[in-house]
Structures are given as C-alpha cells and as structure tokens.
Amino acid sequence: MSPDDLLNDLRQRSILNDEQRQRIAASERSRPFSLHWELRALLYAGILLLSSGLGLLVYDNFDHVGHGILLLIIAAACVVSFVFAWLNRPPWTTEQATSRSAFGAYALLLACLLFLTLEGYAQYQYNVFGTRYGLVTFVPAMLFLALAYRFDHKGVLSMALTALISWVGITVRPLNFYFKTNFFDQKVVFSAIGLALVIGAVALVLERQRIKSHFTLTHLTFAGNLLLVALLAGLFNFEGLLPWFMAGLAAGCWLADRYARQEQRNRAGSFLFLLMSAVYGYIGLTYLYFKYLHPSGNAVAGYVYFIVSGIVLIAYLLYQRRSVLHESI
C-alpha cells in the first residue's frame, strides 16, 4: 500500500482527520531524501583505500631513496588527522557522547590506521621493539583503548580488542605468530581464557560504574567469542584436561545464557549471547558424543543424535524467546 492509499484508508476509518491527513501527505512529498549512510559508506571506503594505498606505497618503496619523504608525509597525515579529531572531539562524558562532529570520528579512524602503518614500518626498519614482538600489538592496543574511551568510538574499540587478543597469541608464542593456529598450545589457550575473563570482568565493572556502558556489548562479544573458542580448542586438543574443559564450556554457555536473559539495555543485541551459547555448546556436545559415546559403525545412532539434539535446541531457542520476553515485561 502506498502512503497515499494508507492515508485514505486511515481517514476512512476516522483514525485521522482531514487536516492531519494533508499534513502527513505534504510531509511525505516535501521530505528530503537522506544520503546520510551512503556518504558515510563512501567516506569509510575512502579511508580504507587511502590507508591501504599508503601502506602499499611504503612497502613497495622500501629500498628507494625517497621513502624518508614518504614516511614523513604519512606521519604528517597521521598527526594532522589526529589533531583534527582532537579539535573536534566530543565532550568527555561517562555516558554515550551525543554531540559529535561529522568528521572527527572518521579522522580518528584514519589516524589510527596510519599509526599502524607507521608502527609496522618503524619495527621493520629500525627494530624499535627488538624481539619483544608483544609490544608491537600491546602498544596500539593500549593506545586505541584509551582513544576509544576518550573519543567514544566503537570502531577504534574493536581495533583495540583485536590487537589485545593478538597480543596474547604473540606474547605466549612469539616464534610462530600469525602463521600457525595457536590453539594447539596449552599456554595460549589458558591465556586466551584468562584474557577473555579479564575483558569480560572489566566490562561488567565499567557497566556497573556506568562508564561508557554502551561499550559493554562490544567488549562482551569479543570476550565471549574468545572464551568459548578457547574452551572448544581446549576440549578438542587436551584430552588430559577433558573434564575441566567440559565444565568450563558448560559454565561459559551458562554464563552467556544467563547474561542474555538479564541484559536489559540492549535486548535485541543480547540475543547474540543466546545464539553463541547454543552454537558453541552444540559443537562441544557433538564432539563429545561422536568421540566418546557414539557406537562405531552404527550410522543410525548418529542420525538419531542429530534429530534429537536438533529438536531439543529448536525447543530451547523457542522457549528462550518466550521466557526472555516474559521476564522483560
């Protein structure tokens, strides 16, 4: 139904009076067309292209004489973006910042991306951090974390958390970072679990203190995924500690489930934790079933497992919908 038809319909049912109908129709006709998100997407794409183009420029011109000038330009661009972002910073508040300039947040993003390029170059060329590879990720993690809170920027927060997670992977096993899956190493798994718990705990404390509580969901999404992936990795790889990881996974799923039910601020988003609980838990359960309980050579038992478990989880999710909605009312 077009807006005009609907207006006529509403008039006929006397939900609207004539004056209001004309006002709405006029408003529909004269309302400008918003290009807000298209322009933001363009800006974002431009920033990504620019920073990857500059990164490539540095990489390709390593051995050339002119790379010093190039570096100077990038450093200057980074400083200019940051100064611009700082001049246009939102006023500090523990709540979500409401008044923000159109470009400040994007300038900050560009500054952060350029900082990574510069840092990578500094480490490659001058070996600033020596063999303490952990610092290469730890420094931007801390810097971005601080910037994210000061500038109220969720994108920079995600970058900070990503850096923090790779910091754990690198610090524990410096030699084969980036190239190998680290999750076959017990120390990495335990560090990941530790980090996830720390991030989660800090997020919940900050939430309680009402400091940037709209960041909680980002923190917990990172922490929850890291925790559950690490627990699954432990379950798959370390048979000796199986009972512990089983208990850990069960506890992790229970926590995610619990959090989804209690969370009130962002109801729609909190359902993500129900999904995480169901999917990660199901992967663990299926692994355990086929490894320890499944009678070998009996295909029927496997199919029955999938049928029963699938139906149980469907019922669980449908039930959750009801109970969560019920509690929220």
């Binding site: 990504l48 292209l49 490539l56």
Partner: peptide, 11 residues
C-alpha cells in the same frame, strides 16, 4: 599503490 591512494583521496 598510487592508484589506491588517489582513489582514497578522491572518495
């Protein structure tokens, strides 16, 4: 690299 940089600046 120059192409990407220029495209980024234009965008």
């Amino acid at each position: 690299n120059v192409h990407l940089t220029l495209c980024g600046l234009v965008l």
